[in-house]
Design a protein around this nucleic acid. Sequence first.
DNA 1: ACACCTTTCGAAACTTTTTCGATATAACTT
DNA 2: AAGTTATATCGAAAAAGTTTCGAAAGGTGT
Lengths: 363, 363
Amino acid sequence: MLLPMRDDEESGRVTLAQVAKKAGVSLSTVSKVLNGRQDVAAPTRHKVERLLEEHAYRRTTRSAQEAPLIELVFHELESIWAMELIRGVENVAKAHQAAVVLTESGTRQAPGPDWIEGVLQRRPLGVVLVFSALPAEVKQQLRSRAIPFVIIDPAGDPDPDVPSVGSANWSGGLAATRHLIESGHRRIGIITGPEDMLCSLARLDGYRSAMSMAGLEIDPDLILYGDFHVEGGYDGAMKLLSLPHPPTAIFSGSDLQALGALEAARVSGLRVPHDLSVVGYDDVPVARWSSPALTTVHQPLRRMAEEATQMLLHIRAQAPVTTRLELATDLVVRNSTAPPATDPPRDGPTPQPTHPATDPPRD
Amino acid sequence: MLLPMRDDEESGRVTLAQVAKKAGVSLSTVSKVLNGRQDVAAPTRHKVERLLEEHAYRRTTRSAQEAPLIELVFHELESIWAMELIRGVENVAKAHQAAVVLTESGTRQAPGPDWIEGVLQRRPLGVVLVFSALPAEVKQQLRSRAIPFVIIDPAGDPDPDVPSVGSANWSGGLAATRHLIESGHRRIGIITGPEDMLCSLARLDGYRSAMSMAGLEIDPDLILYGDFHVEGGYDGAMKLLSLPHPPTAIFSGSDLQALGALEAARVSGLRVPHDLSVVGYDDVPVARWSSPALTTVHQPLRRMAEEATQMLLHIRAQAPVTTRLELATDLVVRNSTAPPATDPPRDGPTPQPTHPATDPPRD
DNA sequence: ACACCTTTCGAAACTTTTTCGATATAACTT
DNA sequence: AAGTTATATCGAAAAAGTTTCGAAAGGTGT
């Protein structure tokens, strides 16, 4: 048991002394760089780091004995779906006798400098980042230590340089919106995720495409950004429902937000799906047990995490890998969607400022 | 940054060579014991382990440099409330620059031998176990390596030898049941957790006490064991509702089960809280957003985890600690409970086999 | 110019891990 | 029974890496 995990990497033969000789410094200096000691001048440090990277240095002696770790980084540990991701990584890690280190980075943009320091110290097999961007400097540091990384649902610009796993967000948004259109809805609101997240935008674009394909007007008033949490969904839905001409259906960028929308409907005296249809996104376990059970776009979170972790291990084993993997999403129709109770006034694109119904029609 | 974490432990001065001398074996043998090598005879191993424990041996050189880890072990990563616990441990760990290693042990009774091997290899600051028993042998191994451990909500026998953190389950069960009784309910069903879990039993006992105190009969038909998951709650509630004389209120041992009960009520045509009151347990985030919002017993999960982790670090710093900590629970009244629609037939303890209503009364 | 301080680096000391060979004991063969 | 082979146990020594400490270099103020 506890085999040294596929020893097809004889590359681990490089020793500290060898790197030191190449770099023209002493062995201790290299060790200091490795340990982030402060008494190494910046130029020296960089030179050594470069050499380290070039030689793909990895601790030799200890490697067999050292506990294999896989880092999993969330920027926040709030939502439930994090759990599914965790389980996915756990599964694969366990199969490789590795343990999972879970960290909450705090910021979405980039894990802080103290974080990277911790990672380097832990020398993990690899790092799985969820919903994150990765500044060039951090990438550099990870590469110099031969620590592979994969991003699940990257934020910010898609970086072809960074392997990532996602799901078909655009298709998901399209399918959800189409489902509503096919049910007869014409005014469809959307509460997507944060503006700076790729998946939010992709889902929104799916919505837009579905609307245009159906020849429906895209009313900017019906497009809201949320935060993926219940409260955001509640607030967004309240805003949409208090519009002069409120939507008959809401597509939410997350199940949690959809739960908020459900609550908003409740306090507004609207019955779901009779008076308002709601579609969620993610298909977290509770979606099946909300009332009414949520129609939602299933995202294979567990599998995404599994694939990401596998990818990590493949990169580490220097096997060829696809840089970008995108898994399919499915629409799961449950009880929160139905044809609208009242037909839309007409097909024309002009909004209809009829009765200033802040209180939407009941029953 | 990355200080050697409160260096009030000069005890780390014990070196391998010293232990070896005491044990009358060579340095390498001690190292082998430490690393779980197989070429050490059992008697020798035990002798060394004892000495190791006696001298509270801890790696000297590497200790400052080695990444501090805290292990968090669940037997399953299914439920949402795991998230709250994770966050609690994360918080404290982060404050001490430590990282959290998350593992799923699989079995409730005791983590497997491969698990312990991994832990020993990782040399964590300590181990937080959730819902677990800990066999004597494993305790021995952890102690010989000076790895402290704390159990959150221990299963099996309460072991005074093992520090643990829990919450006032009995009081919680009492408060929940009392609330229902005070609302006017007389026939109150309970779906508690698994039979082999202390917290399930404590909650059940709270229920029993509340019932007896109110002079109400305890009908064994109304007592069911669940698994803390939605499905179990659903099945249990269906069973209770199809009783000849069904309860007017159900106290569930977890919020998830309560969600299942809500669904059972729905498919049975019962409205909550009008026709059936439901009380949950845990107060997980979704409890606030279910429909109706769940009346539940709030368990300070996050704080429990924080306390457990703190306890760990205290033990490690050889500070005096309380072995058993129990945090308070609160009843949170929301919208899933109300007085029963129909008064109970009478106060007498004899069950009333009136109309064989497999289909419970509507409205 | 000199004393003093800070930064940077390497030699050497130290801790630990791992390899490999020595020894003892058991098992098996002739 | 004696010899041979296999296996388990242990330590000496080699190997790897970390840390301490002192030396060299460079700057600063007097």
